[in-house]
Measured scan of single mutants.
Amino acid sequence: RELEAFAERFKQRRIKLGVTQADVGAALANLKIPGVGSLSQSTICRFESLTLSHNNMIALKPVLQAWLEEAE
């Protein structure tokens, strides 16, 4: 499924970029996305391991996609 594929791609790109899960969480606050502050390292970890609820995964995907586009 698309969500699982994105989570895997996100993790691979993050590692290639040399960015930690905690760095991603902190950097999200800098994107100034309305309603989104920083996220914890454990939230990023749970996203990558697909252990968040489906609704949370869907909500976080565009936020993490925005970070990925900014980071690349």
Results as ranks from 00 to 15, higher is better:
K61T: 11
A26R: 13
T51F: 02
E8K: 15
R1M: 11
G25D: 04
D23S: 12
S38L: 12
E8T: 14
L31D: 13
S40M: 05
K32S: 12
V19N: 08
V36N: 06
A29E: 13
L50W: 01
Q12N: 15
K11H: 10
K32L: 09
V24D: 02
E4K: 09
T43N: 01
N55D: 07
A71Q: 07
I33P: 09
A29R: 10
L28D: 01
V63P: 08
Q12W: 05
A22F: 08
Q12K: 10
F6A: 03
R9G: 07
A26I: 09
E48R: 01
F6M: 05
L68F: 02
V19I: 14
I58A: 06
K16T: 11
A59G: 11
L68P: 00
S42K: 14
T51L: 09
A7E: 00
T20I: 02
C45Q: 13
E72P: 03
P34T: 11
A27E: 09
N56V: 12
V19Y: 13
C45H: 14
V36P: 04
S42I: 04
T20R: 06
S53E: 11
N55S: 11
E69F: 07
E8I: 13
S49V: 01
A26C: 11
E2I: 02
R9Q: 15
G37S: 13
E4M: 13
R9Y: 13
V19P: 01
L68T: 03
I15V: 10
K16P: 00
F47M: 03
V36I: 15
R1F: 09
S40T: 07
K11S: 07
A66V: 04
T43R: 02
G18S: 03
A7I: 11
I33Q: 04
G18L: 01
E2L: 04
A27T: 15
V63D: 02
N56R: 07
S40R: 08
R13P: 00
Q21M: 03
S53Q: 04
A66T: 11
E69A: 14
A66Q: 14
K16N: 10
G37W: 02
L3K: 03
I15K: 12
A27W: 07
A22I: 03
G18M: 03
R9H: 13
M57R: 03
L68H: 01
A7N: 00
